[in-house]
Design a binder for these strands. Sequence first.
DNA 1: GCCAACGTTGGC
DNA 2: GCCAACGTTGGC
Length: 153
Amino acid sequence: MKSEPEVFSFEDLLAAKGRRAFWDGVRNYQARNLMRDAMAPGDRVLFYHSNADPTGVAGLCEVVKGAQSDPTQFDPEDEHHDPRSDPLEPTWVGVTVRALAALPRFVTLADLKAEPRLAGMGCLARGNRLSVQPVTPKEWGIVIGLGGLAGKY
DNA sequence: GCCAACGTTGGC
DNA sequence: GCCAACGTTGGC
């Protein structure tokens, strides 16, 4: 899952109550569908800092609660307000994640690109801008290995 | 359904 | 700030 650290960083998640946060603000149907249909409590998550210096994977989380209505869609004051969303059938959802551990070594995008075993990773595909996307168990193992937590999660 | 215009994402 | 790539909108 990608977040701009200036908006919400992995450190912010670590500092949050219970080290957990509701992942709001997703306004892309494909990303929404992944959260709604493909994420369940216990699933592990790589927390990626986008639009940052450097960009890359900062830490590990897990899903603690599956998809729920994203309240920001109904808040006129919120930048993610969606006036077309029906409260009885909300368009947008989010999951709740909890931080597991910061990576001892931040894994930069350059690190990911330089690792031949990650050549097929979705987030490295040309033009892929999805803020939520699947990671295979194999990719997970390689990334946390690069981050200094090989075999620990 | 097509497609041009526009908006957003995100690396650099 | 630039720009490539992609998504969304809306006229037709």
